[in-house]
């Protein structure tokens, strides 16, 4: 039986995960307290999104335990997992809005599928959520008519529709202009506070993230490289974090993909 404290919302203990024979995560230990906002950072293909998949129960670890609100996620049956997921919201990288439904119906989807609320009440709740993300006026638009930032805000309204206790964000700032990044960042912070959620943000956007989060967890080579406060990131002289923070092309994460010696390959030896 894995130990679990009431103050913890998410706890990963010695989690290992691999795709076929390619190891992705190796012995991850991570605890996230209730109400915390943490960022997961690291290079591409470093296992950040995999970590979200494990927390959400979309992936099962080869070993170790994943606890969310005291429940051992990999051991849950589908009905139990769906019960847990009603308390978890997830914002996907590009929103994942249903393209055949308009903005209103996208946000109404969780209410219609998961509750028996009358349509009148659903309408009120949807308008409240859309007002919170500033898109009440766009309720009749189709997803194809929205900008990237607007789509992400609608997806956020849909993700928090059932007032989840845990919010997972998969690269919420990717591909957005600076104004939209700022809007999404402020919404994440405001919603987290208003709904008393625990948030996990997988992101590459250092500037916006450091303003939002309580902790930053840096993944490298399948392990937690550092777990630190946001203000430490700017001052640390850790070469991996410096390369990441300063956007240096070469360093602990090499520019070149491993291959044969350049000279001998050119010479055909």
């Amino acid at each position: 039986m894995t130990s679990f404290h009431e103050s913890e919302m998410i706890a990963l203990k010695d989690v290992c995960f691999s795709y076929a024979d390619r190891p992705i995560l190796n012995g991850i230990d991570l605890t996230i307290k209730r109400g915390e906002i943490i960022a997961i950072m690291g290079g591409s293909g470093g296992g950040k999104t995999t970590l979200l998949g494990l927390i959400a129960g979309r992936l099962k670890p080869q070993s170790g335990s994943v606890l969310v609100n005291g429940l051992e996620v990999p051991k849950l049956r589908q009905t139990e997992l769906y019960g847990l997921r009603r308390k978890i919201g997830m914002l996907f990288q590009f929103g994942a809005l249903f393209t055949d439904l308009n903005v209103f119906d996208n946000v109404a989807f969780p209410y219609r599928e998961q509750t028996n609320l009358p349509e009148e009440m659903i309408r009120t709740l949807v308008l409240l959520k859309l007002e919170a993300v500033g898109l009440r006026g766009a309720k009749d638009l189709m997803p194809a008519e929205l900008s990237g930032g607007m789509a992400r805000r609608v997806a956020l309204a849909r993700a928090v529709a059932l007032d989840p206790s845990v919010m997972l964000y998969d690269e919420p700032f990717t591909g957005l202009d600076p104004i939209s990044v700022g809007i999404i960042g402020r919404l994440i912070k405001r919603l987290n506070r208003a709904l008393g959620m625990t948030s996990v943000i997988v992101t590459h956007d250092l500037n916006e993230t450091l303003r939002l989060v309580d902790r930053v967890v840096v993944l490298s080579q399948g392990k937690i490289h550092r777990d630190m406060a946001p203000e430490e990131i700017r001052s640390t002289d850790d070469p991996f974090i410096r390369q990441f923070a300063d956007g240096l092309p070469d360093g602990p994460v090499p520019f070149h993909y491993p291959g044969r010696d350049y000279w001998s390959e050119l010479m055909g030896q």
């Binding site: 979309r58 769906y82 019960g83 997921r85 997830m90 996907f92 590009f94 994942a96 249903f98 393209t99």
Partner: peptide
């Protein structure tokens, strides 16, 4: 486009 995954995440 992760619409099925989003649905699955909404239970």
């Amino acid at each position: 486009t992760e619409q099925l995954a989003a649905m699955d995440m909404m239970a």
